[in-house]
Amino acid sequence: MIPFNLERAESLEQALEFLDRDGTEVKIIAGGTDLMVELREISPGEKGPGTVLDITPIDEIRGIKDDGSTITVGALTPHREISSSPIILQYAPLLASACSTVGAAQHRNIATIGGNVINGSPAADSVPALVALNAEAVFQSKSGERVSLLKDIYLKPYQTDIKDDEILTAVRFPRLPEGATSSYIKLGRRNALAISRMNVAVVLVIKDGEITEARISPGSTTPTPDRITTAEELLIGKEPSEELFRRAGQAVSEEMINRSGRRWSTPYKEPVIAALTARALGEAAGEGV
């Protein structure tokens, strides 16, 4: 392992102070399940971070709160806690499902949602669910708070717009609307340990047999995470049916090609994301009837 200094931040204020002041390159460490692998890959002599800043002692950015309309998940909350939280299971069950599929128990016990969001892997499990929840990312720096729609922080795979002096303190989102149903499906190459190549989160509201709201948020599909409004619009005002969901799945794969172009992986991804989307919509609709 390359040499670096390790600083422990006992409070958010202390961490922000440190990021503001320090001249060397600083890397934040939370659960470390992405960062430790990354640090290990830096060969001796190559330039790595001068300092690693441990934010895990900062209790103020850990835990789940519900104020009756908005749910706030502290950046340091581990996946295990999110997937078993009664608040999340009731008002955002797709996020509980997504977090329960991250790695194995050893990872979910310490890996945080903040690390998953900022690491920015296109296959990150919590991200499609958060995008389907219309989540916001909350950043803090010495100069104040910055709030952005979570989907807008992504510049490209593995890169967000977080500034050197900022910490992600939380993600937050409105409770799912009354009567909404949802589903999260992940296609892993191996049961628990595969970083998923494709996944999708969907939300449906069905009133009197008619779809009144639809959200479709696929992972590993578009250059940056997003809802696919062309597919969502197909569903509005219609009666749920297998054929309708198949067409929506088709619309997702068409939009993938519009945005990403054709690549070596397209022949695989095109049918897979269409089928996953149709299945997820079917699951969500099945819950509702």
Partner: peptide, 22 residues
């Protein structure tokens, strides 16, 4: 790199990979 679990220990009551923690 966190994939095999041979380094598993219990940290404050929970199983973790000791190769991924400073």
């Amino acid at each position: 790199i966190g994939e095999c679990g041979a380094c598993t220990v219990i940290l404050d009551g929970r199983a973790v990979n000791s190769c991924l923690i400073l």
